[in-house]
């Protein structure tokens, strides 16, 4: 991956070349993960969200318990199949949504991978894509909670149309990735993991990249 995909908070080596090491916060959350699901028995009725698949390298499952009065997240548990940064990101996310009395569901919906990354002290540029599934799993769990509560008006399907059913990446996600400077399939995949486990959607992804590049950059 090119180092020009760097974002604020990324770790870079002293020479500015491609980085390949984790911050202390990442290591701490990786070796001492917080809130991971050890016993599912009392969570059978909890709201749950699942994204990714082991074929594409990352899969995440998130359970939340919510105070129905305040709509604050009082408990968040997770399971992650993935590398060091994927595990650390999910762990940090579970801390962020439950700390200080817990986020409201509306606040939690605004949580972005960048926020998690900043709290982790950055991630190596090539590992950013590993952290994008956690907040998606969280939003899926939030929808599930509203669905279970019968509040169908509050269910927010991921904006846009799903292009890759495996990663639940939508055309909107691809639009944002292109706006962020990902102008090739490789760069979009580095951000979104789209089509890794399900290559059949790649032609459509490539078409969308061309479309959005033309729309925004005229090339």
């Amino acid at each position: 991956m090119d180092t020009d995909n760097k974002q604020a908070g990324d770790i870079v080596s002293r020479t500015g070349t491609q980085s390949w090491f984790y911050s202390d916060a990442v290591k701490d959350h990786f070796f001492n993960p917080r809130n991971f699901m050890q016993d599912e028995s009392s969570y059978a009725d909890a709201a749950m969200g699942l994204v990714g698949s082991p074929a594409c390298g990352d899969a995440m499952k998130v359970w939340i318990k919510v105070d129905p009065e305040t709509e604050r997240i009082i408990d968040c548990k997770w399971k992650t199949f993935g590398c060091g940064s994927a595990i650390a990101s999910t762990s940090m996310m579970s801390v962020m949504v439950t700390e200080n009395g817990g986020m409201t569901l509306d606040e939690a919906r605004l949580l972005k991978p960048q926020h998690i990354m900043e709290r982790l002290g950055g991630l190596p540029a090539r590992k950013i894509h590993c952290s994008v599934l956690g907040d998606k799993a969280l939003r899926a769990a939030i929808n599930d909670w509203y669905r279970r509560a019968g509040r169908l008006d509050k269910v927010e399907e991921e904006h846009g149309r799903i292009v890759d059913p495996e990663t639940k990446v939508t055309d909107k996600d691809i639009e944002h990735a292109v706006l962020d400077g990902a102008d090739t399939l490789e760069k979009v995949q580095a951000k979104l993991k789209v089509g890794i486990g399900n290559p059949s959607c790649i032609p459509e992804v490539e078409q969308l990249i061309r479309f959005y590049k033309e729309k925004y950059f005229g090339v």
């Binding site: 991971f36 699942l50 082991p54 899969a59 995440m60 399971k79 992650t80 595990i87």
Partner: peptide, 8 residues
């Protein structure tokens, strides 16, 4: 494995 949601 405890941390993983996958059980293939």
């Amino acid at each position: 494995r405890q941390m993983s949601p996958v059980n293939l």
